[in-house]
Design a binder for these strands. Sequence first.
DNA 1: TAGTTGATGTGGTTGGACCACATGGCTTAC
DNA 2: GTAAGCCATGTGGTCCAACCACATCAACTA
Lengths: 246, 246
Amino acid sequence: MWSNHINYDSDMRTHQLVLTWIEKQLSDGQLSVGGRLPAERTLAEQLAVSRTSVREAIRILEAMGVVRAGVGSGPEAGTVVISDPTAALGSALRLHVATQHLPVSDIVETRILLETWAAARAKPDAPELEQAATLLGEMDAVERVARTADDFLALDIRFHLALADAAGNAVVSAMMGSLRESIQGYTARFTANLPDWDATASRLQAEHRDILAAIRNDDGARAATLVAAHIEGYYREAGVGRQAED
Amino acid sequence: MWSNHINYDSDMRTHQLVLTWIEKQLSDGQLSVGGRLPAERTLAEQLAVSRTSVREAIRILEAMGVVRAGVGSGPEAGTVVISDPTAALGSALRLHVATQHLPVSDIVETRILLETWAAARAKPDAPELEQAATLLGEMDAVERVARTADDFLALDIRFHLALADAAGNAVVSAMMGSLRESIQGYTARFTANLPDWDATASRLQAEHRDILAAIRNDDGARAATLVAAHIEGYYREAGVGRQAED
DNA sequence: TAGTTGATGTGGTTGGACCACATGGCTTAC
DNA sequence: GTAAGCCATGTGGTCCAACCACATCAACTA
């Protein structure tokens, strides 16, 4: 009795039809985060398309961070709806950077814009700031003991993401994460070539503390200024602007 | 003699292997915008995977706006590399809005942030402003003759995109476009219910002119203020914030 | 009771077949 | 010789029928 009859535009590729159907289920709330899609074979039969087309649609949704597919039985199995916008934006941006149609400098500039806004907007009592403080301590530990730039950078990313989350805008958080992810390779490559990583790390940590302190003092303007200087300084060392010549 | 041997991580899904290979070709510059991928059957043989897996990878790249697949022969046929970041970000955001894990209010807020920045940064002599001016004229014509909100909105979108492009940051442009696309359905739905569309359209047009004038006067600060008010006012009418109850 | 084993259902992968389509060269008719 | 028509070729689009690896759970066995 339920109408599966969506827009049978004759010039629509089959997997698009499946995508449309699923998106409609999501919009109508008949499918929500945590829910499961029908099994691929079942869905194929319901929509009267091949399993291949169903799978192509699911592949796209997976790349978009909308579903997660798992084999076997149990809670981890089946195709379940999730919500990971960062994944989608991140890989998309990374791919377009690879095509060299998105300059790294534009990405850095956008990152500064978003992160500056987030710092200015974050509330001093945001719970995410606790996590940020913890991460600062872990970075100190890494710096003191192992002195590996990779570990430090991993924590650095999470610190900046925590600050962005503190602004309470999911879109900005997702975009921030994706921007950072898209140039992660770039960042790591140049960081490995720094002459004095210890000095750089110390400077970054000092700046991190200042930023966090400013936010906790409810001084959004100062926090924003510090963030801009922090990021700009870092990438200036990397020589963003002159296109990669290594 | 060429090594196709990428990371044969045993726990990598087959289509991911294909994706990795293609992304490497892009990064290495052996594949760039305008170039063509090998035919699906050829690529499958080269990578020693099934055509199905190749197709799943291509489907993802297509959804990401990285390639375009065309049947037949000739210039329009085959799988050719393009660069349309907006498509990827737009559909991803739209899907996540559908899952109701990205509040429309966050999208609007982010749009204001990006567009305000773009208005403040746009140079008075940017060529995109010419296009923006032309679009203003077309909107006048639409308003005078047909009075259909849909046509007006289509031009309105292009006007705002032109302004964003004038700032010269490809990432911001792409994100702007995707944000707008992701809530296009939402916007159109509420616009149709406005009591006096003509009055609204006139007001929007007046604001558009003021914004464009401010940019051309090199008064970025004023342009930013006007843009923020323009967008905020529009969505306030829509009642963004109270979650959709139509 | 404890351990084993097999049935079941999931996504993952493959090969092969056929289709619609667009081109381009060949054949044919004039 | 030229023009019209036609078919070989190669492309992506779709479908099908298998088989695999995996994880669970119920039935069976020691």
